[in-house]
Design a protein around this nucleic acid. Sequence first.
RNA 1: GGUAGCGUAGCUCAGAUGGUUAGAGCGCGGGACUCAUAAGCCUGAGGUCGGCAGUUCAAUUCUGCCCGCUACCA
Length: 513
Amino acid sequence: MPRPFYITTAIDYANGAPHLGHAYEKVLADVIARYQRLQGRSVHFLTGLDEHGQKVQQTAVKRQIEPQVFVDEIAVTFQEMLRNFQISNDDYIRTTEPRHKAVVQDFLQRLFDQGLIYKGQKTDWYSTRQEQFLTDKDRDENGNWPEIFGEVTQTTEENYYFKLSQFQPWLIEHIQSHPDFINPRFRQKQVLEFLKEPMNDLCISRPKSRLTWGIELPFDHNFVTYVWFDALTNYYSAVATKGLWPADIHVIGKDILSPPHAVYWPCMLKALNIEPPKQLLVHGWWTINAQKASKSTGNASETLSLVQSHGADAFRFYLCRDMVVGQDADFSVKTFGERYKSELSNNLGNLVNRLLNMVGRSYAGIIPSPAADEELEKSLKDLWVITERKVLAAFEESQISHALEALWVFISAMNAYIDTRAPWKLAKSTEAVDRAKLDSCLATVAEGLRLVATVLTPIMPSTCEKLLQNIGADPVRHFAGQLAWSNVCVGRKVSERCILFPPVDPKPEEATA
RNA sequence: GGUAGCGUAGCUCAGAUGGUUAGAGCGCGGGACUCAUAAGCCUGAGGUCGGCAGUUCAAUUCUGCCCGCUACCA
């Protein structure tokens, strides 16, 4: 029995509404999780919410509610997003849960007992008005503190530090000897560059006088732990009792690769004598209509409404199709609409109806047996072998856009194949030879579509299920034995008509954009 | 300022561990067809692969410098 495949996303910070970036990361992880399940592996897929910290506390105070009440509200909106995008996570961790707090405190205590956490002092400038610490880069060009900070005072604060620096040599060696640790590879350089400089130890606490909304240090009740020990530990705390560690993939954005995930997290684990995760899968950022995604303009949240108009699967498809994992991509309603119409409605959806109609007309809806396979059929089958190999390789590398590219080459080839065969002509012929060709043509397209829908299931689960059902095929449970060209659809009854991707009218304000 | 990434057809982007005429989709022009969600197919136009220099028999692909954009760090 192989070890279960454990995949996570970063946990979202509970301060604000879910937006495109949140959704994308879940979709990417979900596609990989579904792929692995179809490959027959047992999968554990975790996502969750990061609920502590200054900003949450501030917002709660502002709204005059308990922080827990506030994050409970936020959690609902994020979980609703997961449902909207058909995310198949097996667990949802919230950092305010007892199971999480217990592990965080255990980690901290163990490191403290080993002498890897120590108390230190640091002198800082503090802005009372903004309630934040300042650094030299906050100064204006004359070296003064800008007006917005109000009175700035110098303070000395005691805090706890984790001896991060002593794990630096190990980390460099680990990254160099595990080329798959950071995917895509080019991100690795960035991390190794960062590691050329000596690291500072990591400040891991805040005094309760400043921050109460956090997990208390087990060895000093006057402090809570701050950010990284709280947030990163979720990956472990969620499966602490399940024996699933190490994680196979942490799906994260490029902004939190270095230092948090590529430096702090592996060093924390090393200090605790726990294996590091196998891989960090680092995706880029979406811009919205060529502009940076912004909470203030709300552009990143508004895009999510396309789930309602076009459906979760179409949205998932677009996200997977248009972003090369690791690079940035631009999201636009226009591009979304074009992809939807062209690739989903016209290429794929219409192809399904071409088949259904012809099978209905010539065979009373029963898929015929391929009676006369010739060169045309053979070359399509050969193309499938290539396509299958490319698609699976792309999934294995988490390069979903490559899988879709290859798949659409095959879909186009099927449309071209139909035109070459011209089954509407064959259907008018009374010659047995033509009838045999017609049999083959429709059987071939049916089988091609079955294969496409099978392998496309991780990306568009509902649509593929519907497609398979409409061509009389069984739902996909596993890829095993399902990806080879076969005649399983022969004799199956197809439905009359199936609109997988109905035309969607653009909203009035978008039509002019 | 340092580091990394990006800069390829009108648009959005793939790709090349250096090697025949650099690819796709969309958009645009032309054509034949009609089974289908006015979809599909064929075909054409369109690029000195950011600029300069170097290494090489050969560079868009490697190296250096420069320019522009982005991110991280200081």
